[in-house]
Design a protein around this nucleic acid. Structure first.
Length: 946
RNA sequence: GCCGAAGUGGCGGAAUUGGUAGACGCGCUGGACUCAAAAUCCAGUUCUAGCAAUAGAGUGGGGGUUCGAUUCCCCCCUUCGGUACCA
């Protein structure tokens, strides 16, 4: 009867599995509760201790809700399509399906070790054809729909076609990429190719030629959020702009709803702000400027129509369509040169030289709509093709970038806003008095904006317009390991959807995963698959990583369904995710796409809620301690010399930081972290390159051969990512093997609040291990079962009820670290009592079951129960037991504690005041003065004001 | 630059949202048990002065509101995340 975590764990894991303890059904009269984790991408490196943090939190919450009488859906699966598996395949020739499968097995084993209550019968894998059948199906729904602005929802393309047949393009108000006006007669006369092109302009999943983020090294197109600092997020390879025909999703159609519906979500403000910024709504005006000597007009977007009298020139994006038309022959060479220069520059260059102003004059002039003056039209890099209209009116006096541009190229500057009344205001603030602006003179900026909007609409030179930063999502990848598009093209290049009965379109087998020629997907090389006869060919691109993850939470509701993505029955029962836990790294990508898909499915009547995730919590990263040795950077040859941290910090640039395997370091993570002789020996054995290196400390300089026994060298500590390259990865299997799953779970929670980043420190786990042994010894002492039917004592009742209250409230707040502390206090208190009453100790088992499922289950069954502790009834607390007979009050004078007094809990306030001023200690401090006021905070403190 | 989060002992972190700052754990110090070690138990542990009782200081820095501020307000500093020529 000794506490042997491993035996207990193995025993109960088996029993839970055979009894299907954690499987749930939607046929239930209980209220539902859906707890979801962001499913992992199964990488080859396996799990480290940071990964399960969120899973442990969600598992505790799920188990708690279950005990509280809810029918809890708590599933897990794998986001299994993706780049790393394919990269690995290119390097090793191992098929992604195989390595992915192995990685999943490894993950599954590691997860099972920790004792999660996942319902594995609902597991999903995004790379499984029975799953991606429905990813393809949803894609086709998007393809077959457009966004109708009047009813503010998605509607079917066939409906759009019927409108075109009757009224032409003017009969519909819908979201589309570019304006194109035609009558019903014109529509009817169009060829199928032309019709296909027109419909692509409306479809929610559509194909267009666009400038995409092309990554040569990865051989694929990346989404904006897969590019970080101008290089690919994965691998850090350079990214350039390239024109390609690509599938896109019209997420912009949902921009307003995605923005508006954020307000009702129980997400952190920080995260909502991130999404709001990403959507980037700005209200302003769309203005048309006539061109001198040309029919065409320049269309601009501005949030500051009030500054139009300060517009002294215009700037087009270098890629703007008008550039070719308006450039004069004298300027042609300069413009051509400049455009070449721009397109040759990588994203990284552009980022690095943001402050450098570049541009060139087109030779053309626009006409200012109010002053009728000729204003020059330039092109410049700082105007972006795909934001707004790709053209601006430049107001140098009120915009920093326009100012820099005007100064560099000697363009005129007219002050139009007087900010003297607003001393602290920056150029960005819409504040000031309008000057030099004809009829706007003397007006405050906000009024002037409104007046201009009215005037502009009257004159017919522009309209109010709302603009969003959010752009349509690129949906094509030139990759093998992803969902194939259920699309083929006929000999005219017109797109056709597969029929539902033809789904899933399975990913064909391949043994060479390198990209095909011309930036094409590896699938393009498989002619037998691509060529469908009669000139029909398949789309060879595959879908991006976010495709499968945008709806997986719906599949869990009915994971085995072969006829629907999930039955309406199950969707109406489970509805939406009540609690979603995952990392911040998906703040804008995954969470935005999922919300978009969900809203689309809502429009289709396929889901009952407008938002998929009611409450969302971001778990913080668990960081690792990184220990560095400092090596002198060599000028020429010679031996390496390592010095102490203190020496290196004097001249940091002279030394290279070499991360050291954490286990060689004594006192790691502290100021005294160092390698002793043994540590140094291990180090050079581990990295033989440094076998003959010198080590220099206050004791002198030695190599490993002549080093004295007491020699040590100090290392530098940092907190950072847990990663292979820093040699600081801690595997949960090791921790679980040594301390047990219960201990691992509780320690991860004990580390700190789940939403905060915190460093892992294995040393601290002993405290939790000690706690669990103490906890066990409450029930079993010296091999004897101690708990009996004796009546509980007052003190034990009090601490039990206080703990139930505290833990329950903490779980509701997801404050698991303080809940674990409360258990520790509770056990320490109970140990003091001689009695081991069933009435105290059984409720405690249930209370702690969500945190430590194994030890509590074992003790619960030993106590004679035949059902699982995980299907017991959650204990409630009774305030009666929490009342105190006497209260100790601190007595303060002017807020400073000067004495304490213990009085009965129900003492009258006046009596308390009287007693307090008569206290000897207080009298001394009062020094004969009379109190002005006595403040009594019941149960807290007494303050005497003098 | 902009947006967001956070700064509390040697360390991870508590503090009922304005009421005894440092719960709980690690580490450290001393003690018990032991031939010894491990394990366990007991006591101490914010800093300064003092043998002590005790006194003073103290939640990144500076100011303010209040009987009373880790908590509210203003200014500044630092760290970490996100984002970036967004018109």
């Amino acid at each position: 009867m000794e506490f042997q975590p491993r035996d207990i764990e193995n025993k109960w894991k088996k029993i839970w599995k055979t009894s299907r303890l954690y499987e749930v059904s939607h046929q239930s009269s209980k209220p539902k509760f859906y707890v979801l984790d962001m499913f992992p991408y199964p990488s080859g490196a396996g799990l480290h201790v940071g990964h399960p943090l969120g899973y442990i939190a969600s598992d505790i919450y799920s188990r708690y809700k279950r005990l509280k009488g809810f029918n809890v859906l708590h599933p897990m699966g794998f986001d299994a399509f993706g780049l790393p598996a394919e990269q690995y395949a290119i390097q090793t020739g191992i098929h992604p399906a195989k390595s992915t499968h192995q990685n999943i097995e490894q993950y599954r084993k590691q997860l099972d070790n920790i004792g999660f209550s996942f319902d594995w019968s609902r597991e999903v894998r995004t790379c499984d054809p029975s799953y991606y059948k429905w990813t393809q199906w949803i894609f086709l729904q998007l393809y077959h729909h457009y966004y109708d602005l009047e009813s503010a929802k998605a509607m079917s393309i066939s409906h759009l076609v019927s409108i075109f047949e009757k009224k032409g393009s003017t009969g519909v108000s819908a979201v589309h990429s570019h304006d194109e006006i035609f009558t019903s007669g014109q529509w009817l006369k169009m060829t199928t190719i032309e019709k296909d092109e027109v419909l692509m302009n409306y479809r929610l999943a559509y194909r267009k030629t666009g400038y995409v983020n092309w990554c040569e090294a990865l051989g694929t197109v990346l989404a904006n959020d897969e590019v970080k600092d101008g290089v690919s997020e994965r691998g850090g390879f350079p990214v350039e702009k390239k024109a390609m025909k690509q599938w896109s999703l019209r997420i912009t159609a949902y921009a307003e709803r995605l923005l508006r519906d954020l307000d009702n979500l129980d997400w952190s403000e920080a995260l909502k702000t991130m999404q709001r910024n990403w959507i980037g709504k700005s209200e302003g005006a769309q203005l048309f400027f006539d061109l001198y000597d040309h029919e065409a007009k320049i269309e601009v977007f501005t949030t500051r129509p009030d500054t139009i009298f300060g517009a002294t020139y215009m700037v087009l994006a270098p890629e703007h369509d008008l550039v070719d038309i308006i450039t004069t022959s004298e300027q042609k060479d300069f413009v051509e040169q400049y455009r070449n220069y721009v397109s040759a520059r990588s994203e990284v260059d552009r980022m690095a030289e943001v402050k450098e102003v570049t541009g060139v004059f087109t030779g053309a002039y626009a006409i200012h709509p109010f002053t009728q003056e000729k204003i020059p039209v330039w092109i410049g890099e700082y105007v972006l093709k795909d934001y707004g209209t790709g053209a601006i009116m430049a107001v140098p006096s009120d915009d920093e970038r326009d100012m820099a541009f005007a100064q560099k190229f000697g363009l005129p500057i007219i002050d139009v806003i007087d900010k003297t009344n607003y001393p602290g205001a920056t150029l960005h603030d819409k504040l000031g008095i309008v000057i030099n602006s004809d009829f706007l003179n003397g007006m405050e900026v906000p009024d002037a904006i409104q007046m201009m909007l009215v005037r502009v609409e009257e004159m017919g030179i522009g309209t109010r317009k709302v603009n969003y930063k959010l752009r349509d999502a690129n949906y094509s990848r030139q990759r093998y390991w992803g969902e194939p598009f259920p699309i083929y093209y006929d000999s005219d290049g017109v797109s056709h959807a597969l029929k539902e009965s033809e789904l899933p379109l399975e990913l064909p087998d391949l043994d060479d995963f390198k990209p095909a020629a011309g930036g094409k997907s590896p699938l393009a090389r498989l002619h037998s698959w691509v060529d469908l006869g009669n000139g029909n060919t398949r789309e060879t691109d595959t879908m991006p990583g976010f495709a499968g993850s945008s709806w997986y939470f719906l599949r869990y509701m009915d994971a085995q369904n072969e006829n629907e993505f999930a039955s309406q029955d199950s969707i109406h029962y489970w509805k939406d995710v009540d609690l979603y836990i995952g990392g911040t790294e998906h703040a804008v990508g995954h969470l935005m796409y999922s919300r978009f898909w969900h809203k689309f499915l809502y429009d289709k009547g396929l889901v009952p809620t407008t938002e998929p995730f009611k409450k969302l919590v971001n778990q913080g990263m668990i960081q690792g301690v990184i220990e560095y040795l400092y090596m002198e950077k060599q000028k020429t040859g010679g031996n390496n010399t390592f010095v102490c941290f203190s020496e290196a910090s004097k001249n940091p640039e002279r030394y290279a930081k070499i991360p050291v395997f954490i286990q060689f370091v004594k006192n790691y993570g502290t100021q005294g972290s160092h390698l002793d002789k043994k540590g140094i020996e291990s180090f050079v054995e581990w990295m033989p390159d440094y076998k003959s290196a010198q080590f220099k400390s206050g004791l002198g300089t030695y190599s490993i051969v002549d080093m004295p026994e007491h020699f040590i060298i100090y290392t530098g500590s940092e907190v950072g990512k847990m990663s292979k390259r820093y040699h600081n990865v801690v595997n949960p299997d090791d921790i679980v093997g040594r301390y047990g799953a219960d201990c691992f779970r509780m320690y991860e929670m004990f580390l700190g609040p789940i939403d905060q980043a915190k460093p892992w420190d294995t040393k601290g786990i002993d405290g939790v291990a000690k706690f669990l042994r103490k906890f066990w010894s409450l029930y079993v002492e010296n091999g004897n079962w101690r708990i009996d039917a004796s009546p509980p004592d007052e003190a034990s009742l009090r601490i039990l009820h206080a703990t139930i209250k505290k833990v329950t409230e903490d779980i509701e707040k997801l404050s698991f670290n303080t809940a674990v502390s409360a258990f520790m206090v509770c056990v320490n208190e109970l140990k003091k009592s001689e009695t081991r009453s069933k009435e105290i100790l059984e409720p405690l088992l249930v209370l702690m079951a969500p945190f430590a499922p194994f030890i509590t289950e074992e003790l619960y069954s030993q106590s004679g129960h035949t059902h699982s502790v995980h299907s017991a009834t959650y204990p409630s607390w009774d305030e009666e037991y929490l009342k105190k007979d006497s209260i100790e009050y601190p007595v303060c004078i002017n807020g400073k504690k000067r004495d304490t007094i213990t009085v009965s809990a129900d003492i009258d306030k006046n009596d308390l005041e009287k007693i307090v001023i008569e206290l000897d200690g207080i009298k001394k401090w009062m020094n004969g003065k009379n109190p002005k006021k006595i403040i009594v905070v019941p149960g807290r403190m007494v303050n005497i004001v003098v």
